[in-house]
């Protein structure tokens, strides 16, 4: 599904990613943990195609294709989804309108017919109720005045609607209360499938109690310094990053 080889990326001349290697197979869930500022969000933005980053070395293959040559919307249509650490507000645009525009844009890019209103309403209502997003919230401008937890639930609802093949979740658990964490995790787990891969960025083991990863990576100073099974997260929870940060 995803193959990152020796990826180096700069922001404003500072090297943030310093040789990332990561392979995710279809159906796998990988978690990335690591100290603040280690480059986790940067990696997620580079995957999604944000243009503030200069790729100085390396390559990314997504379903065998050169991801770095694709524009952000092409990547989205090809199946890359990023649940933002800080979702963006879009004043005046009803959440419902945003969802519909996004879904139809992707369908159009893939040469599929646009959804008609009744079909669209039906699936939005279903996904919204699964993620406990109220119909009232769907009418509000996207993310404007949403609480932290509401924004995160909204991100996962979008993910459920867009049915991507690679889901990148950047600290989706932060800001969630205990119940919301369960709702969101259930939402994510419901999307797990042999055709879909996930890259879950988190600081906390508790998310990984719900979304059980196949592989856990530790990122430090722009590199993956350690990879292991789900036990690695437990160990980190216990001992912190000290061992790995020093190693880097």
């Amino acid at each position: 599904m995803l193959e990152i080889k020796n990826l180096h990326a700069n922001v404003d001349g500072n090297e943030i990613l310093r040789g990332i290697n990561l392979t995710i197979k279809p159906g796998e869930v990988h978690a990335i943990m690591g100290p603040n500022g280690s480059g986790k969000s940067t990696l997620s933005y580079v995957l999604a195609g944000k243009d503030d980053y200069e790729i100085t070395e390396g390559e990314i293959l997504f379903k065998g294709e050169n991801l770095l040559e694709m524009s952000p919307d092409e990547r989205a249509a090809a199946g890359v989804f990023l649940a933002f650490q800080y979702p963006i507000e879009i004043p005046g645009v009803a959440t419902m309108t945003f969802l519909r525009t996004a879904m139809n844009a992707q369908r159009k890019a893939r040469g599929e017919a646009e959804l008609n209103t009744p079909d669209f309403m039906k699936i939005v209502k279903q996904k919204a109720s699964e993620l406990k997003v109220s119909p009232e919230m769907l009418k509000r401008p996207l993310n404007v005045g949403f609480s932290g937890g509401e924004k995160k639930r909204n991100e996962i609802m979008q993910m459920a609607l867009l049915e991507p093949s690679l889901c990148v979740l950047d600290e989706t658990d932060s800001g969630l209360d205990i119940d919301a964490l369960r709702v969101v995790s259930d939402g994510v787990n419901a999307l797990r499938s042999p055709e879909r891969s996930m890259l879950v960025i988190t600081h906390y083991q508790r998310l990984l109690d719900h979304i059980i990863p196949d592989v856990v990576h530790v990122m430090s100073a722009g590199k993956i310094v350690k990879s292991g099974g789900k036990e690695l997260a437990l160990e980190l929870e216990e001992n912190g990053y000290a061992d790995y940060v020093n190693a880097a």
Partner: peptide
């Protein structure tokens, strides 16, 4: 950021 967010969701 608004532009990127929309594009990430598939909009041109």
């Amino acid at each position: 950021d608004q532009m990127f967010y929309c594009q990430q969701r598939g909009m041109s």
